[in-house]
Design a protein around this nucleic acid. Structure first.
Length: 127
RNA sequence: AGAGUCGGCUAGGCAAUCGCCCUUGAAUUUUUUUCAAGGGAGGAAAGUCCGGGCUCCAUAGGGCAGAGUGCCAGGUAACCCCUGGGGGGCGUGAGCCUACGGAAAGUGCAGCAGAAAAUACACCGCCUAAGGCUUGCAAGGUCUUCCUUUUAUAGGGGGGAUCCAGCAAGAACGGUAAGGUUGAAAUGGUGCGGUAAGAGCGCACCGCGCGAGUGGUAACACGUCGUGGCAUGGUAAACCCCGCUUGGAGCAAGACCAAAUAGAGACCUAAUAGUGCGGCCCGCAUUGGGUCUGGGUAGGUUGCUUGAGGCAUGCAGCGAUGCAUGCCCUAGAUGAAUGAUUGUCUUCGACAGAACCCGGCUUAUCGGCCGACUCUGCUC
C-alpha cells in the first residue's frame, strides 16, 4: 500500500459497514461544514464513507463536487489514517459558499485531529 | 450604420502531477494483483408533462363508467409532437400568437355600471295620426227657454245647456325606439323615401343566413346566380352533446443461482363460490382462498446498452420525413465513475450530473460564432 490510489477496498460499501461506525463512535471531529466520525477497524488500511444529504445540497452537481473533494483529500492522506473507518457527513448548505481550497484545508484539520486522538487512545489502551 | 425577426452551431483549450469507472490485451496458478492501449455525462442529463418500445398480469377480448383529445391534410412506432395549408387576432414589416367541433337538445352563470343583460323592456327624450281622456271654443246638430210674424202649421231673431259632429290646446294608463347615458357585450350599418314621431316599414349599397355554382383532396375561399328583411346575444379550460382515442402496473418491471413469495402446524370459509382481475358487468383461465403460530432470507448475477442508433452521399418530397448505398460502435455506474492541485491562454464564465431505452413538450441558462430575412437612416 504505497500508492495514492482509491480502490473499492478503501470504501465503506454496505449499510452494515456504516452501521458499525454509527453504533460505536470512538472518535469525532466536526464544525459547521463537516462532521467526521471514526472507529478503529483492525485493518492495514483506512476506509471512507460519505453522506451528503439532499436536504443540505439540493443539486446533484453540488453533492458530487463535495464528495470528490473529500475523497481526494482522504486519498492523499490515507497513509496517516491507517486503521480507521471514517464517515464524513455534510452538515449544511453553508458549504456551498466555501472555495474548494478552504474545504480541503478544513478536511486536513479533521484528519490531523483524528490521528492525534487515535494515537492518544492507543497509548491509553496499551497503558 | 442602427433597430429587429427566424433558424442553426458551440458549451473552455493546452501542459504537468496524483486519482476514479468500463472494455480489450499481456503477465500471474484461477481468485487477486500489476502493466499497456482505448473509451468515459447534457443541450437541457432537469421537471416527470405526454407518446412509444420492453417486462409481467390472459393470447389484453366486448360493453358501460371514467380519462384524454378536438379546423383540414400529411409525417411518424406513436403522440397532446412535427410539417404544410385554412380561419381569427397582433405587428409598418420580416414574423408572432391561437383547446379553432356544437350555443335553433337541455340545464346553469353574468360583479360594477346601466332604463334594460336575454326576456324583450322603456329612464331621459321625441310625437299626439287613429281610438280614448282632460280643458277650452260655440259657426253645425239636438234639447230647452224667451221675443216676434201668423188663426194655426210654420218662419225669423236672441239667450242657455249638451258634447252627437267639429275645431284648438294639453298630456298619458297612448304611440315610438331615431337620438342620449352604461358596459367586454345592447337585437345589423350608411343614405334616401316614408311618418304624428318613428321603425327593414319600403328602396339602394354594404353586411349576414340559406341554397346552387366555381376553385381546392379537404379545412375553406370566391361572390356569378337565386332566395330570406334579418331569423340563433355571450359563455362549452361551466355541466353537457357529438366524433375519435384509451386495459392495468412498472427496471424496486421481470428472470436466474442458493433451502429461498420455500417447507411445517392450527383454525375458518367456498360451487349461483373463491382467486387471477386493482372502477363495474360480461367473457376467459384456474381450484383454491383467508387468519394465526413457529421458522428463515433480505446476498450475488442478469435485465444493461446495437438502437424507431449515428455520420456521409445520392434520390423522392414545398416540408416534416422516407428510401438506397457506404462507413462507424460512441458511458453503463449501483454507498453510485469524468475530479483535484499548479501553470498558461490579456478575459474562461451560465444553467446544471446519465440510472432500462428512445421520440417530443416545458422550464433553467454566461458568453461566442454562422446563415437567411425585415424596417429606418446615410452614401452612390
Amino acid at each position: 500500500m504505497d500508492g495514492f490510489g482509491f480502490s473499492k477496498q478503501l470504501r465503506l460499501n454496505t449499510p452494515k459497514d456504516y452501521q458499525r461506525v454509527f453504533n460505536d463512535v470512538q472518535l469525532k471531529s466536526g464544525e459547521k461544514a463537516f462532521l467526521c466520525l471514526a472507529k478503529a477497524n483492525d485493518l492495514a488500511y483506512p476506509r471512507l464513507g460519505l453522506i451528503a444529504p439532499k436536504k443540505h445540497l439540493k443539486l446533484a452537481v453540488d453533492r458530487n463536487r463535495v464528495k470528490r473533494i473529500v475523497r481526494d483529500s482522504f486519498r492523499l492522506n490515507q497513509h496517516d489514517l491507517v486503521g480507521l473507518d471514517i464517515v464524513v457527513l455534510v452538515r449544511s448548505k453553508y458549504l456551498k459558499e466555501l472555495s474548494s481550497q478552504r474545504q480541503l484545508a478544513l478536511l486536513e484539520g479533521h484528519w490531523s485531529r483524528l490521528i492525534s486522538k487515535f494515537s492518544q487512545r492507543e497509548l491509553e489502551f496499551k497503558g
